[in-house]
């Protein structure tokens, strides 16, 4: 399992060049449109999102309901268990989609948490600079040296599995990368004319950060978000493997895949369906992320 937030180390270098306002987005869109893999992936993600939201209503079963007459059966049209059932007779189609909701939600919320902390921390350090910057970045360095996954495991083991805790724990680890990237960007941005102009007009520091620095960081952030979501989903599945995931009868892709992996020979459908959903989603996010980076990187044209 990777340490979350570690997949985008090159973003710092990639965005060192100037960001050119709106035209950048138009250019980027044109590049991205030509990247078939990324476009297809984006469509798949959208489809997946719609499916996990409305899908569970399409089945006559609920995610917690035991069908005592159909325990551990393979995909079967007659009983409307189109993905089969698990060892407790619960419909796998509904559970897979329900698990998708949880996994995607964990991915998005945890990423947002790290985004908010990371952007405010990084932008502040980068903009204020000097001694404050030095101290703030020193703290980040210290935190970097922590074996964080170990702390997450300890937290989960000791204080039970609370879905909020999962969000916060994963988000709290991930913000470090974001803070570093944003700080680097801010440092280069603040020497730009429009920032200096705003300063000269006496706009407050907070407003400069909010109005000028943050919007110009959107490119990095977009890449970061698409690459972090799949990592967070993987971290969640890792916690599920250790038995520290979400609470039954709720489920997640990680929990389903872990269950399925234990029965890959007896009941392969229990592994295959959730694993296909999980792997497809992760693949797609990574492709979109890579595509976005290529598109937003001015050097790439």
């Amino acid at each position: 399992m990777m340490r979350p937030g570690m997949g985008v180390p090159s973003a710092e270098g990639t965005f060192a060049t100037e960001v050119k306002g709106r035209s950048l987005w138009v250019d980027a869109w044109n590049v991205l449109r030509k990247n078939r893999a990324a476009m297809l992936s984006a469509c798949l993600i959208a489809f997946m999102a719609v499916l996990v939201v409305i899908g569970p209503w399409l089945s006559p079963y609920t995610y917690a309901q035991t069908d005592w007459d159909n325990i551990s059966i393979g995909p079967d049209w007659a009983s409307r268990h189109i993905f089969g059932t698990d060892a407790l007779g619960r419909d796998l189609f509904v559970r897979t989609l329900h698990g998708g909701r949880i996994s995607l939600m964990i991915g998005i919320v945890a990423t947002l948490v790290s985004l908010i902390i990371g952007i405010s921390y990084g932008a502040t350090a980068g903009y204020l600079g000097g001694r404050v910057d030095h101290v703030m970045m020193r703290i980040v360095d210290i935190l970097y040296a922590m074996p964080f996954m170990f702390f997450v495991i300890l937290l989960m083991v000791f204080f039970g599995r609370n879905i909020i805790l999962i969000f916060v724990a994963i988000g709290a680890i991930n913000w470090l990368d974001m803070a570093r990237i944003v700080r680097g960007q801010t440092l280069s941005l603040k020497r730009k004319e429009f920032v200096e102009a705003a300063e000269a007009q006496g706009v407050s520091t907070f407003n400069i950060i909010r109005r000028h620095i943050v919007p110009n960081l959107l490119g990095v952030v977009a890449v970061y978000v698409t690459l972090t979501i799949p990592q967070v989903i993987l971290v969640e599945s890792f916690l599920s493997f250790l038995g520290l995931g979400v609470q039954e009868p709720m489920t997640s892709w990680g929990a389903l895949v872990n269950e399925g992996a234990q029965e890959m020979e007896t009941a392969p459908w229990m592994l295959v369906f959730p694993a296909v959903f999980l792997a497809t989603t992760l693949f797609c996010f990574n492709f979109v992320g890579d595509g976005l980076r290529d598109a937003l990187d001015p050097k790439d044209r």
Partner: peptide
């Protein structure tokens, strides 16, 4: 090749 190399971060290692 990139798709193949990405299986490592698409399929959890416990699978």
């Amino acid at each position: 090749v990139m798709a193949v190399s990405m299986t490592g971060i698409s399929i959890p290692n416990f699978v």
